[in-house]
Design a binder for these strands. Structure first.
Lengths: 372, 372
DNA sequence: GCACGATTGGTAATCGTTTCCTGCAGGAGG
DNA sequence: CCTCCTGCAGGAAACGATTACCAATCGTGC
């Protein structure tokens, strides 16, 4: 009766366009543009694209044509404001280039992608102020999960910061995940994904002891940090379990997980006449340095000295000799972190914790000593 | 006149839906909550936080107190919808764990962070359909720049895809950056950051030739891909420049940039009696395989055979012998990509291109042959 | 011939911020 | 005393999408 067709037709011309009189629109096109182009309402366009509402075949075709011709893509910000949008996963890491950290990052990215999330990655370069800023930023970004990776000193200040992060993120509907980091006080809304540092170090040291070695030079990490401390505990566990006393203080060294530190400590031990037939380097980077120092000193590996590392970096197999080491499932750590954080049943308790195992990879850097 | 106070008070109860009956507000607090808590209008809160408008000291204090007590952070989505927000930088890469790619990623992240941007990183695993999706996604995300890394075959389909990406991103106010990839047709809104593959290969080969080697086994990459092809061209350039003919077809091999391919090709050359006194591996990964095959065959490096690699991966110096190779400024590549894309003067022409140099790093894997 | 259900499409509210435009004091200047 | 700034605060209109709610059309069965 009433001529709706007239209204509908009128709309085509109604579209405001006198406003910007330039021919070429440089502003990304909006759903309104698409609606005008297709001669339908914005609601119809939205429903056509969402596909959750019946739309006639002909209308759909017109809408799709308009979308294509205008190169339309939805504006996530607008979409996030109304309908819900899957927030990204944030990875906060000391440095992406470390061989093991890169694998954690890959795991995180992979799992996030498979759950339909994007990954934001940020490097802190060990600056805890930046870590603070980053957590704040991620809250603004509505990240679904914030994954913090890398060992830390579990002191007062660390505990306080983690509690604060956990609560702040939880309040924003996000989830804090700690990978390879000390767990904060229980009861906090935190997911902890860790691996068995102590067990791995135990395996490594036991392998040496079982091969007949009795004096094992331990090239540990920085004291105070959780992961190095646990690896040292594993070393001592093994000594105890095999009834071997720590021969000399000088066998138990500590320092950063770097190539140069491993080199320097091994060289010094050699110079100072410390006696040892084996080296357990608590990280492959340190083992690299030890290998270099031994080679330089004319000690053959494994004929004179056996070496075991930790981490199983990708090129461990390409060293001379191929390095026997402890494999840490870094990629799986990253995947687990994301999976746990995103698919957690609400029924579960606030905090949850997973510890992944490690594995001894036997290559060519350990020699079995003749029975003595 | 009209009692606005009533409206404002009414909002308090209007707030959240009865859906979640827990007492604690689980919805992140909004600027409205802050305004209510501080007893001011949302406009005032916004202005206080932006600091771009005069606000009385007392009001500022009240607002700040409310912000702190509610743990308020702005909602980027809402902010992006009205005032402008700095879009993230997107990095689209085959795989983050590759030693050189990780460095590009680090460079991108670093420069993005220093320009106040977040970095989105996505792995394609060499799937061009996923690359398509990702570019689309980044357009939705309003990324300021989209950095595509890694060599590709510069065929018809590649050219078409890149042109499409460039135009689509440009229309959305974003910028396509190609790192280490073939440049598409000129005139497109694209930034290309590349390094001197051909020159590097020339340096590497020349170093061997200048050391007296005349039969250089070339372990190239996959034919068709831009970077391998250029490295091969550099190898041939050097041969020509030194007046050395390619002795045998068998010296010019091709295959993937992997350890196993390098191993297999070297082993086969050895088995087939191909004569060579030096190897130029077009990637350090391939060099790794070559080193293993030579060791296995009892050929000493560098005494029997000299080896030069390409990429200067971090552990090249830890191989036995330390690998002479070509350093590629991967991190700088990443930094440059972001810097160029974000700080580009609009006055400049549509497309721009930068080529970074490479450097020969001499270590221990090349021996100078006695004058013959 | 007409009411009714099944389809389709439109209107407007909503999400959280920013910002333009007004409004209201109170002090300065006429 | 009136006007005019000026400093500070509030209301409301964007921004671009989703979606609840409502209106209109078209067969169809009575």
């Amino acid at each position: 009766m009433n001529h709706q067709a007239v209204d509908s037709a009128a709309k085509t011309s109604k579209g405001r366009r006198g406003k910007s009189r330039r021919g070429a629109e440089d502003r990304p096109s909006t759903i309104t543009d698409v609606a005008r182009e297709a001669g339908v309402s914005v609601a119809t366009v939205s429903r056509t694209l969402a596909g959750n509402y019946p739309v006639s075949e002909e209308t759909r075709a017109r809408v799709m044509a308009a979308v294509k011709s205008l190169h339309y893509v939805v504006n996530v910000h607008a979409k996030a404001l109304s309908g819900r949008v899957a927030g990204p996963v944030a990875l906060v890491i000391k440095d992406i280039t470390g061989p093991s950290l890169a694998h954690v990052a890959a795991g995180v990215e992979q799992e996030a992608a498979s759950l339909g999330r994007l990954s934001l990655v940020c490097a802190t370069h060990d600056d805890s102020a930046r870590e603070n800023d980053l957590v704040q930023l991620m809250r603004e970004q509505h990240a679904a999960a914030v994954v913090l990776v890398g060992s830390a000193a579990p002191d007062e200040s660390y505990q306080r910061r983690m509690s604060e992060y956990a609560r702040a993120l939880d309040a924003a509907g996000s989830r804090l995940v700690l990978v390879g980091r000390p767990a904060p006080a229980p009861g906090l809304p935190v997911t902890v994904v860790d691996y068995d540092n102590r067990g791995g170090a135990f395996q490594a040291t036991s392998h040496l002891l079982a091969s007949g070695h009795r004096s094992v030079l331990f090239l540990g990490g920085e004291v105070g940090l959780n992961s190095p401390d646990e690896r040292r505990a594993g070393y001592l566990d093994a000594l105890r379990a095999h009834g071997v006393a720590l021969r000399a203080e000088a066998l138990d060294t500590q320092g950063p997980y770097t190539r140069v530190s491993g080199y320097a400590r091994t060289r010094d031990a050699l110079r100072n006449g410390v006696e040892f037939t084996a080296v357990f380097a608590a990280s492959d980077m340190v083992a690299l340095g030890a290998l270099a120092a031994l080679r330089e000193a004319g000690r053959s590996v494994p004929d004179d000295v056996s070496v075991v590392g930790f981490d199983d970096v990708p090129f461990a197999t390409d060293l001379t000799p191929a390095l026997t080491t402890i494999r840490v499932p870094y990629e799986e750590l990253g995947r687990t972190a994301v999976r746990l954080a995103l698919t957690r049943r609400d029924a579960m308790s606030d905090d949850d914790r997973v510890v992944l195992g490690t594995q001894l990879i036997i290559r060519k850097s350990v020699r079995r000593l003749a029975w003595q």
